[in-house]
């Protein structure tokens, strides 16, 4: 597993928000206070990891063998919605502290395209690699269960999910920090609010662009 590559790519070079444009809504909406931003980021990270953990095997071991790839979107979005609900219930029951910190952000996560995005991305990587190694019958996780060449293992998928989530958290917390100052600036009226936030994000995106050149 190319750990360092995944870390650099997910945190910086292919940052979900500032490079791939996923999860922009919460990025703009829940970034007024750093504490709220951190809560949102961690909630997203948690759901991303679990999503990768669940959707990858379902796609590989259920949808692909049954040739039901076309149900992918419905299945994924339902899984995500169900997972978010379950996570909420579990947190409420077993960890009220964590629930009070993350709970209010969890329902927002369902409609966050970063989550569905990461699930799709992992699947895409899987199938792209499969196309590359089409001559090979290479079983990793499956051990003979399936004939699909999986270049990305479950471990890599989950790890990518974690790192992409942390990349999201990084971006949103940074933006929240900047907005603490930017929102207080006295700018022309039409620029107040979203336009200023966009301009701040613009400069952050420029900074992150540098990482893509490593």
């Amino acid at each position: 597993m190319d750990v360092l590559g995944i870390i650099i790519a997910a945190l910086f070079a292919q940052n979900f928000v500032l490079v791939k444009f996923m999860g922009i809504c919460p990025f703009l909406g829940v970034s007024k206070k750093p504490s709220a931003a951190l809560g949102m980021g961690l909630a997203v990270t948690a759901v991303m990891v679990i999503t990768c953990l669940v959707t990858y095997p379902i796609y590989v071991f259920v949808l692909l063998p049954l040739k039901l790839e076309y149900l992918e979107i419905i299945v994924f979005i339902l899984i995500i919605a169900a997972l978010v609900q379950m996570l909420e219930m579990i947190l409420k029951k077993f960890s009220p502290g964590l629930y009070s910190a993350l709970g209010i952000y969890l329902p927002l996560v369902t409609t966050n395209c970063a989550i569905l995005g990461v699930a799709e991305l992992v699947i895409e990587m899987t199938t792209v690699e499969e196309a590359h190694f089409v001559h090979r019958v290479f079983n990793t996780v499956a051990g003979g269960f399936t004939d699909y060449g999986m270049a990305m293992s479950l471990g890599e998928a989950v790890f990518s999910g974690l790192m992409y989530g942390l990349g999201f958290t990084l971006a949103i917390v940074l933006l929240a920090g900047l907005r603490q100052k930017v929102d207080k600036l006295n700018v022309a009226k039409p620029l107040r609010g979203f336009p200023m936030t966009m301009l701040t994000a613009c400069f952050m995106a420029m900074a992150f662009y540098i990482f893509t050149l490593i």
Binding site: V19, F21, P195, M198, L199, A201, C202, A205, Y209
Partner: peptide, 11 residues
């Protein structure tokens, strides 16, 4: 680029 998208949208 990504940054250009944010700039255009904001303006």
């Amino acid at each position: 680029n990504a940054a250009g998208a944010f700039l255009t949208y904001g303006l």
